[in-house]
Design a protein around this nucleic acid. Sequence first.
DNA 1: GCCGTTTTCGGCCCGACTGTTTTCAGTCG
Length: 577
Amino acid sequence: MTTRSDQIRMLVELTKLTALDEGSPQAFKVRAYENAIAGIEGHHGELSGLTKAELTEIKGVGSSTADKILELEATGTVAKLETLREMYPPAFVALTKIPGLGPKTLKMLRSQLGIEDIGSLKEAVDAEQLRELPGLGEKSEQKIARAIDRLGLHGKDRRTPLVEVLGFANSLAQRIAEIEGVVEAVPCGSIRRFSETVGDVDIVVATTNPGLVGDVVLGYPEVSEVVGAGKTKISFLTREELQVDIRTVRPDQLGSALLYFTGSKAHNIALRQKAIDRGWLLSEYGLFEDKEVLASETEGEIYEALGMQAVPPMLREGSGEVEAASNERLPNLIERSDIKGDLHYHSDRSGDGRSSLEEMVEAASGAGWEYVAFTDHGEDLAINGSTPDQMLAHRDQIRGLDSRYPEIRLLFGCELNIGRDGDLDYDSDFRLEFDYCVASIHSHFDMSSDRQTARILTALQDPTVNAIGHLTGRYVGRRPGVELDIGVVLEALALSGVALEINGALDRLDATSEVARQAMSVGVDVVIDTDSHHTRDLVRMDYGVRYARRGWVTANRVLNARTLDEVLASVAARRAR
DNA sequence: GCCGTTTTCGGCCCGACTGTTTTCAGTCG
């Protein structure tokens, strides 16, 4: 049986090889495959077992793609894909990762010089053969030579975890904003959409003096190599080989520039198509009717002119948001100001906690929260956890502080460890001492999907468990999450009334926004937590909320957007079952 | 390859930068 990820993987490979075969990533066939992938990703139920008629009902999936999905299911492979694989073996396809080398040039190199892989390309470059070819010259040859040397460091597919670039992007934008003539400098692209990984850093700069921006920025110490520098656009690499693209526009064009540079590509295409439908043109310079500007200053004006609701950046993935916004049906997304408290929060009672109980209370109170649950680790987490006696003493301290900080209610909670088979810390009587518990996995990441799923199901049946923390245990860019049958887990969460955590730590962002969106569609509640171990971690609530918005999470489904009484009532109701 | 409140055929987003060119192709975002 083929899974949805098998199907998507097949289509992604087909897209890549077809782009090479057609000689352009913009080829219509390539775009059609991309649309089919987007349609399938936005389609929630299983695909396995669907008939051809049912498959072609999915947006972007036509007769030919449906056949390929069925063929994959019946035979385990797709003849068209096999043919392309023979024509373009992996060693040749790998050359597409070299920046500056596109499909047209690659195919010419192959036919003219017999280049099949990185080795033969390098030889041809060293023999100065490339410069003799039509359309190429000495400079192109040198550019390719440099790119080969760097291959793997900043290949076209490389993505960097958001956690590694967000601070840098913000500080860069802040410094650019101080340059004379600059009105605003905004990190855009996948950073603004709050994707967990980013390909590069995109910054839009509204300025009356674009030349100065270029001069100043290229003098910054972070600039390790200039990739390109024109009148309105400069690109450079940092020492860590992160690419930064800076685009300047006039201040009155900021809205259209933000729209264009925030993307996603699929969202932009959908908007531009709406403009075309009205006989208009949408570019980074504005929305135009003939040469007349209809809107350009703010994103909101452009959306309004296109007859739709303004789409929050996190939703701009081309996954149904344009249709929803056109029908006034965008969800009422959770906002930072809806959040009333944090239900996953540590003190130095945990071995990995870095701030004292009182410091953490002070910080939570300063954040304006109405309540916070201290959920220090249970005893099973050997180095970090606490014995029952330590926990009871900890409770006394919490209750003592609770009376000293009347503006915030302090709950005595626990982060229970989910053992290999779903077992939890302490005994069931002792667990009832806690006001609230989140249960999470911290080990045994490489078991089968079935066993991981069973383990989570066992844990969430326990009446003292109120939420499942960082569902998959992933660390973005470092450790993949465990494999789970998400559909089964969500169904069990919905039935039991246990909340799904969206952990706001930037290297976790777990559960993922895709899972969160699925959770919304099946009526699962979400809790957005900071999992703070230090007073400086509270900013994660912002991140968690932004990431939750990316998962189409609505305020009415967020546990910690409710009052303390409502939270406590749901804990009591669960224990009474 | 997909799609249709003009269309079942003829369209399919728009523009900057580079290097190679005398007006443009390729690549990228």
